[in-house]
Structures are given as structure tokens and as C-alpha cells.
Amino acid sequence: MGNGAKAAMRRERSDKDGKGSAKSQLKSNQAAMNIICGICRQTFLQTIKRKALEEHIESKHSGKEFSACFPGFEG
């Protein structure tokens, strides 16, 4: 049996199992939005840097403290 036939058999098996379908990353991205601004309740990805959060404070809540907007942030 040639490599082309083996690949076709592998594709058929994976289609039966449902493993070959493309998966969306939207649900996992939504689950990773666990940093929340304490004032406006905007969510951010857990991989965000402190500088980006400080920019949010400057543009949306000027004059507020970082700890008031993001009390549980460690980073």
C-alpha cells in the first residue's frame, strides 16, 4: 500500500472520530479573559502586561490608582 492510500485511510478514520475538524479558539480566549477593571468592568486577557493596563487607566479613568482598577493583579 502506498503512502497516498495510508494518508487517505488516516483521514477517513479521523473523520469518523471527529478529531479532524477545525476548532475555534474563541471559547478558550473568552475563558482567559479573567482580569477585570474594578471601575468599568472591562475584561482583559490573563497574558496582558501591566503597561497596557496602565494605559487603560490613563485613557479611561485618569486620576485613579492602579490598585483601585485592578486590585488582584499580580504581574
Rank of each mutant, 00 (worst) to 15 (best):
residue 20 G to S: 15
residue 39 I to C: 04
residue 73 F to S: 04
residue 50 R to K: 15
residue 72 G to A: 11
residue 10 R to T: 14
residue 17 D to S: 15
residue 28 S to G: 01
residue 8 A to P: 00
residue 4 G to N: 10
residue 27 K to L: 06
residue 1 M to V: 13
residue 50 R to I: 02
residue 64 K to D: 01
residue 29 N to I: 10
residue 64 K to G: 00
residue 71 P to M: 02
residue 36 I to A: 06
residue 22 A to M: 03
residue 49 K to I: 01
residue 71 P to L: 03
residue 48 I to L: 01
residue 21 S to W: 03
residue 69 C to T: 09
residue 36 I to P: 00
residue 54 E to T: 12
residue 2 G to W: 00
residue 52 A to S: 14
residue 74 E to H: 11
residue 63 G to D: 04
residue 34 N to V: 14
residue 13 R to Y: 03
residue 63 G to R: 04
residue 32 A to M: 07
residue 17 D to M: 09
residue 35 I to R: 10
residue 67 S to C: 04
residue 50 R to Q: 07
residue 34 N to Q: 14
residue 41 R to K: 15
residue 32 A to R: 12
residue 43 T to M: 04
residue 14 S to G: 11
residue 42 Q to P: 00
residue 5 A to S: 14
residue 28 S to I: 11
residue 37 C to I: 02
residue 48 I to D: 01
residue 6 K to N: 11
residue 23 K to H: 12
residue 38 G to D: 05
residue 35 I to M: 08
residue 73 F to Y: 15
residue 45 L to T: 13
residue 44 F to W: 07
residue 54 E to P: 03
residue 5 A to F: 05
residue 39 I to Q: 06
residue 51 K to F: 04
residue 16 K to E: 09
residue 54 E to W: 01
residue 66 F to G: 07
residue 37 C to A: 09
residue 75 G to H: 05
residue 39 I to H: 07
residue 27 K to Y: 05
residue 52 A to T: 12
residue 73 F to V: 06
residue 36 I to Y: 03
residue 6 K to E: 08
residue 68 A to W: 01
residue 40 C to Q: 08
residue 9 M to L: 13
residue 36 I to V: 15
residue 38 G to A: 08
